[in-house]
Structures are given as C-alpha cells and as structure tokens.
Amino acid sequence: MDIINQVEQLLEQGKVDIFIGYKELDGHVIPHGFTKENLDELKDLKTGETRYSLEKMATHLAKKDKDLKIGIIARECNKRALNCLYTWNQLNPENMEIINVNCCPSRIKIHADCSYLEPKKSGKFKKEHGIEFNNDPEELMEKYDNNERFSRWMYEFNKCIKCYGCRNICPVCFCSDCSLEDPDLVETGDLPPDVPIFHLVRASHMAGRCIDCGLCEDACPAEIPLRLLYREINQIVSDVFDYQPGQNMEKSPFTVIGDKVTLEPKPMDTLL
C-alpha cells in the first residue's frame, strides 16, 4: 500500500488527528499537516530527499494540545529523535503513529542528504565547498596533536555568527530556558559569542542526547563541523556508559543521579 493510502486510512479511522508529512508547493517540498478535513490535499503528499525535523514540529503541536494524536513520516534520524523525545517526556509515544520511509542509498531510492549512513565523513556540501583552512575536520582529529586540534576548533568556533540555528533546528533542543541565552554564561551583544563556552555548553548538553541527524551542521551558516563535535562527545558517552542516544527508549545516563563519582577528572585538552 502506498503512503498516501496509509495516511488516508489513519486519518479516516481516526487513528491520528493530524499527519505531518511533506507536500510540494511551487517547486519547494515543505512540511505540511494533513487532516481529515482536507483529504484532497493528500494527493500532494511527497517523500524524497527533503528532510526537516518533523518530530520537533510534532512537539509544537503537542504543546498546544497534549492529547492530539499525531502521525509523522519518519526516516532513521527522525526515529532516533522520537525515541529521545519520548524519554525526555516531550512527546507521548501512545499518541504517535509513525510511517517509516527508507533512507538507505539505492539506485531506485534517492536517499536523504545524510552522512549517518557513511560514518565519519564530511557531508556533500562541505566537500563541494571546502572551507579555507579546512581539508577535512575528521582527518584533523586523527592526524594532529592536541594543540593543533585545539587551535583548529577555536578557529571554527570563532566563525560563529550566533544565529542560534544549531539550537533552533535541533530536534532534541527543547528547553524553555536555554543556557545559551543566559547572560551569565554567554555575554549578550558579543560576536562571536564567548569562545569556546557557547559551543562547549551546547556540546555538553548534547552528550547523551544528540541523535546525530546532522541538521545543525546543515543549518550552520559558518560551516562549523558541529556534527563532528557532538559525535566526538557522544563517543565518550558511548565508551563510558555504553549508551547511544535514540537507539531505543532507554533513558540517558545523565538523567540518573548516582551516589558516587567513578570518572577521573581529566584536563580539557584530552577531550578536544
């Protein structure tokens, strides 16, 4: 059964009140909420390369009406984000209906612009428009010593134009009071924002939470390799706690308050 029929059934049988998918409008494929009242719009339902955080949009609707039954189209990254949002009580899994779409690369199915499937590689855009002073950030992590890596990261952070796009687009950034807007941590009116505090605050919050969708890096006008940063952070989380955010509904280790400290404090440069 094709997706349009599946969505039509969900809406008609009342299994969902609204279905968030994509439709084409003037040549742009954009997210759209399909409802029972507008079933004729379903003919425009599209899936393809386009990727927005539909699950973040679902949280906006759930905030307006917590009992709303929401359906969404989900790729692998959307599913990981959903798991994460469930464990952080941002969405109720009982109110969600998911229709999976494939994002595996194949000849017949053009997959999303996603580097998750090929770990540890720069995305398409970065390859095409290699930034100055930048061969490949991953290469840098492997080849160079801590000092060189540190200065490289500082260089990257200094490019930040403080658009908050990385936070705004992130499916798992949902705090009503965001630390990045706390004037005690991040001075207001300064560009670039406090380096490296701004980026390291966000990176530490992404520990045990970032589901590696890459949307932040796509949205960063300064082309800062954010995904790599959060991947490195979550590599530590994985090594220490054996936890991979979004893989299932297991809660992040950082939501559990233990009774003893088992980690040795380490100087910052070994993490960078």
Binding site: G27, H28, R51, Y52, Y164, G165, A219, P221
Partner: peptide, 22 residues
C-alpha cells in the same frame, strides 16, 4: 505564526538563516 524556519530548497540561503531571519 508560531516559528520561522529556513527554507532548505531556497537558492539564496540553502537552509541557513541569521539570527534576524530565525
């Protein structure tokens, strides 16, 4: 209107915005 997002398929900004646009 609840929020603003960058339009990913737009040829000018390709899914990015500055703080004003957001």
């Amino acid at each position: 209107i609840n929020s603003t997002l960058p339009l990913k398929s737009h040829p000018v900004n390709k899914g990015k915005l500055c703080i004003k646009g957001w």
